[in-house]
Every structure is written in structure tokens, then in C-alpha cells.
């Protein structure tokens, strides 16, 4: 995405080089700039304080806590002990595996489906407003309510559940959904996609509507079918948005928490729903181990930061 240069930032040819000596007029201008900057910076204080108090301080505190242990009200430095303990937790690798599986499935389903829905909506000529509202509607539901709907209405393991009723009507075998270790992850991805895709669809739609129509016309004149138009016109034209949403989606899905908490009452069947974020919660709030939770939080931060850095590097190179 090209950044627009500030007016006057580029030097116009032919203008004399400004003198390095400050003139009274320039001094007045600098004073004005300082005043303006002061105002700007003062406005910035609010945001900086909010970030400092609610983002940066907790992060630093989390890192510090991850090297400490508090017992009997006494806090001591314990080096890497918390990290060793958390890595030795038998649920540690299960949680990472579950989180990666969820992220992977969410990329396949949660990332592709909204894009395809956006393309379909973009192609439609009638009732587009209604359909957009319909697609966006689940986003307006509080996530907990949406997940409870799935839990009690769709994923009921008895024949009364919506999905099992549909499967039965189609003559297909039913599923235990959240009670089946193998179905836990796909079921969580399905609910999560339904719940979240509205926002992504709208962003894709906005990007699609910026694609110049003549490109499609030219492609059609060259004999390109729908699939080739998508591959050779739509995808390249929306590449930056696609890349950005992919990164946001991966970072968001790696923090999987509310889905296991509500759909699986936490860990699910034999840890099949335990995510890294849920394990942090479990250690911090149920096992009297805030220091271990902090260590796992730092590990997660490092993994996500590493992923983001690699990703940004790769996309920067492509640009």
C-alpha cells in the first residue's frame, strides 16, 4: 500500500536551497511547530499512557514474573525454573499441537471461506445489502452467546442436536461433536468461522470493489473463465489485504481460548481442546501458578513475535 507523501515534503526543482541560517521568520515557524508538536504530543499522552499501563507494563511484568516464584508471600528469582516446569507439564505439547491444528484448520476453512463468500457477494446484483447483513449478523452476537448456541443447539451429541438431526435426515452417521477427541478441533473451527467471518467478508468485499472492472473485462475478452479471473485478477489485486488478514488470522487463532472454554468446558475430552492460552489460564487461575503461567505467556509471545517477524520479512521481500 503506497503511502502518500506529506504536502511539500518533496523538494520542487528550481527552488533555491534554503539557507542553513535561521531567519526571524523561520524562528517564528519553528516556535509554531514546537507549539503544534506540543499539542500533538499532549494528545498523544492519553494513548501512550493507555498502552503503557495496559499493554507494555503487563508485558514487562509478565517477563519479570516468569523468572520469579512467589511462595508464602516471598518472591524469589528462580532463573529458568518456571520455563523448565511449564515445558515438563504433560499438557504443554498437547496444547501446542492443538493450537497449531486449530490454526491450520482455521486457515483452510476460516480464511478461504470468507474470501469465497465475498467473491460470491461481489458477483451478485440483487439483494446484496440483505445478504451482507446476514453474513455480518453473527459478528454482532456476543462470542459467548454464539458459542453457547453451538454448544447446546448444534453440537448436542444426542439425536436432538441440529447437526445430528441433519446428518440423520441425510442418512449419514451422527457425531459426538465436542465429546469426540477427533471432532473437537474441526467443530471448534466451524463455530469460530461462522462467528467471525462476517468482518473478514466485509473487508474482502471492500477490497474486491476496488478492483478495476476493466481488468475483468479484459480478462473476459481474453477468454478467461471464472476460476482464471479469480486466480489472475482477483487474487493479485487483493494480495495485500489477503496477506494482512492471513497474518491477523494466524495471530488471532493462535490465541484460541473462548472456544475451548465454552464449547468444551475447558480441556474437553482428554485434553483434546486444551489450547496454549487455556493452559496459561489453567496454570494461572486454577493451579496457583501465576509464575508458570507467565512463563508460558512469554513463550507464546516469542513464538508469535518470531512468526510475525518472518512473515513481515517474507511479504516485504515479495513487495
Amino acid at each position: 500500500m503506497a503511502l502518500t507523501a506529506a504536502p511539500g515534503a518533496t523538494r520542487r526543482p528550481g527552488r533555491p536551497t534554503p539557507s542553513p541560517q535561521p531567519t526571524p521568520a523561520r524562528r517564528a515557524g519553528r516556535g509554531r511547530r514546537v507549539r503544534d508538536n506540543l499539542t500533538g504530543h499532549t494528545f498523544l499522552v492519553g494513548a501512550l499512557v493507555c498502552f503503557a499501563v495496559f499493554s507494555w507494563y503487563p508485558m514487562v511484568r509478565g517477563v519479570v514474573m516468569s523468572f520469579q516464584r512467589t511462595r508464602r508471600g516471598e518472591t524469589t528469582w528462580v532463573g529458568w525454573d518456571n520455563y523448565a516446569r511449564i515445558i515438563a507439564d504433560p499438557s504443554f505439547w498437547t496444547a501446542w499441537k492443538n493450537t497449531f491444528v486449530f490454526t491450520g484448520l482455521a486457515l483452510v476453512l476460516g480464511y478461504a471461506v470468507p474470501f469465497l463468500v465475498a467473491i460470491l457477494l461481489n458477483e451478485l446484483r440483487h439483494a446484496t445489502g440483505y445478504l451482507r447483513v446476514l453474513v455480518y449478523l453473527p459478528v454482532m452476537l456476543p462470542p459467548a452467546s454464539a458459542l453457547f448456541l453451538f454448544k447446546f443447539y448444534a453440537y448436542d451429541p444426542s439425536g436432538a442436536g441440529l447437526f445430528n438431526a441433519v446428518l440423520t435426515a441425510l442418512g449419514l452417521p451422527t457425531s459426538e461433536w465436542m465429546q469426540s477427541p477427533t471432532m473437537t478441533m474441526p467443530a471448534m473451527v466451524l463455530a469460530s468461522t461462522w462467528m467471525n467471518m462476517g468482518g473478514a467478508v466485509l473487508i474482502y468485499l471492500a477490497a474486491l470493489q476496488n478492483v478495476p472492472g476493466e481488468l475483468y473485462e479484459a480478462a473476459e475478452l481474453d477468454g478467461a473463465g471464472l476460476w482464471r479471473r479469480i486466480v489472475h485478477v482477483t487474487v493479485p489485486q487483493t494480495r495485500l489485504i489477503l496477506a494482512l488478514l492471513a497474518m491477523l488470522q494466524i495471530v488471532a487463532t493462535m490465541q484460541l481460548f473462548i472456544e475451548p472454554l465454552i464449547l468444551a468446558n475447558g480441556a474437553g475430552t482428554q485434553d483434546s481442546a486444551t489450547s496454549v492460552a487455556y493452559l496459561i489460564y489453567q496454570h494461572g487461575f486454577f493451579q496457583n501458578d501465576l509464575n508458570g503461567a507467565a512463563a508460558l505467556g512469554v513463550i507464546m509471545l516469542v513464538v508469535l513475535a518470531g512468526f510475525s517477524a518472518v512473515y513481515l520479512r517474507l511479504t516485504a521481500r515479495q513487495d
Binding site: 459426538e176 465429546q179 469426540s180 480441556a267 474437553g268 482428554q270 486454577f286 493451579q287 496457583n288
Partner: peptide, 20 residues
């Protein structure tokens, strides 16, 4: 001792036998 942490572990044994 350490009841809540132990209960979290034993949840898996209970969920295992009740769902599988």
C-alpha cells in the same frame, strides 16, 4: 494438597471414560 491442580488432571480420566 494442591487439590485444584490435581482435579484438573483427573478431569481427563473422567472425560475419557465418559465419552469414549
Amino acid at each position: 494438597r494442591n487439590a485444584q491442580a490435581i482435579y484438573a488432571v483427573l478431569d481427563a480420566a473422567m472425560s475419557g471414560v465418559l465419552t469414549n
